[in-house]
Design a protein around this nucleic acid. Structure first.
Lengths: 94, 94
DNA sequence: TAAGATTTGTGCGTATGTATT
DNA sequence: TAATACATACGCACAAATCTT
């Protein structure tokens, strides 16, 4: 999956897919592309808000999904770090 | 058109005209009267529901017509904005 | 030690989107 | 048409922890 939306895509507010899911795909694409290295922080929520024109609550929702899928690791009051850059160790979530 | 029902009319649930069409005429009259300026949001769906005693689905149906006729522009999750205040650039919809 | 900037945590209110009954 | 419920999204405000200067 994550094939329709690329790393350079923008949010389509009119489309059928929810913006928070679009952002999930975009960020996964950017991680895989190497925009941020493993163990390094991705853009802050505030930055993503500015970059994609979304509400912070929406950005946070996307990050929550990324964390659940194991792409990133959120460190309270510090940042959101890249946990992996490919889906090699893809794992099931209950 | 929109001559029979004025800006201060109320919905007549007994009459021959469907409530959603009555509301369309009322809202157009209110826009033309200047209740809401161009580029500004009209009353929310919830507000219109309370004001006219209609179901939200009915109000939305009216707004859909207004949007198709170019009177308003619906911005997802934000509001319904006045696109024009007169029928100068009246245009055909397919 | 202190102050300021940055970042995530949390909550509230409101609006539209969609579906069901 | 109506009534209801839930999902999705925006905006704002403030708290708490961290980092920088």
């Amino acid at each position: 999956m994550y094939e329709q939306i690329g790393a350079d895509a923008e949010i389509d507010h009119e489309g059928p897919q929810a913006p928070y899911l679009q952002l999930v795909e975009i960020l996964v694409a950017r991680i895989r592309r190497g925009d941020w290295d493993q163990g390094r922080p991705i853009a802050s929520e505030t930055r993503l808000v500015q970059e994609y024109g979304l509400a912070r609550s929406t950005v946070r929702r996307s990050i929550k999904v990324l964390a659940q899928e194991g792409w990133v690791h959120v460190v309270p009051h510090r940042g959101t770090y890249v946990a992996r850059t490919s889906d090699e160790q893809e794992q099931e979530q209950e």
